[in-house]
Nucleic acid binder design. Structure first.
Length: 115
DNA sequence: AAGTTGACCAAAT
DNA sequence: TATTTGGCCAACT
């Protein structure tokens, strides 16, 4: 049988794979960039279906907090993965990576070079 | 088969 | 600043 993945899943995987080390994107951002705006809730599921390991820990809530229940195993695991690659977290809140507001998304996807 | 849930979110209140 | 509301929809009860 074929293991044909849905377009949504494929797009989500590609976007997540594109998130650079030390940076994060929200579920909503991933969905929108993947071409499926408003499907933030489906992103987590799509990642779980990925055949290969994704930098899933770089996907967080739009308010820059980790989506798992604070203190839970999964939460601590994700927090560690982020800390280990240089992401700063203050009181459960991820510190903004760049000071230029508005270019967060582009930086995450294409890098801070262009401009 | 019908109702609930969830690694969510932006806008409205 | 905090809580509610409506949208999304596949997986699970």
């Amino acid at each position: 049988m074929s293991v044909e993945a849905k377009p949504f899943d494929e797009s989500v995987w590609q976007v997540v794979k594109g998130i650079k080390v030390g940076r994060v994107m929200s579920y909503g951002d991933v969905a929108r960039v993947a071409g499926f705006p408003r499907r933030a809730r489906m992103v987590a599921r799509a990642m779980g279906r990925s055949p290969e390991l994704l930098p899933w820990h770089r996907v967080v809530r739009s308010n820059l907090t980790i989506a798992f229940e604070a203190g839970s195993e999964p939460y601590l695991k994700q927090e560690k993965l982020l800390l280990d690659e240089g992401v700063k977290i203050v009181k459960g809140k991820i510190v903004a990576i760049t000071s230029d507001k508005g270019r967060e998304l582009d930086d995450v996807l294409w890098g801070p070079e262009s401009n």
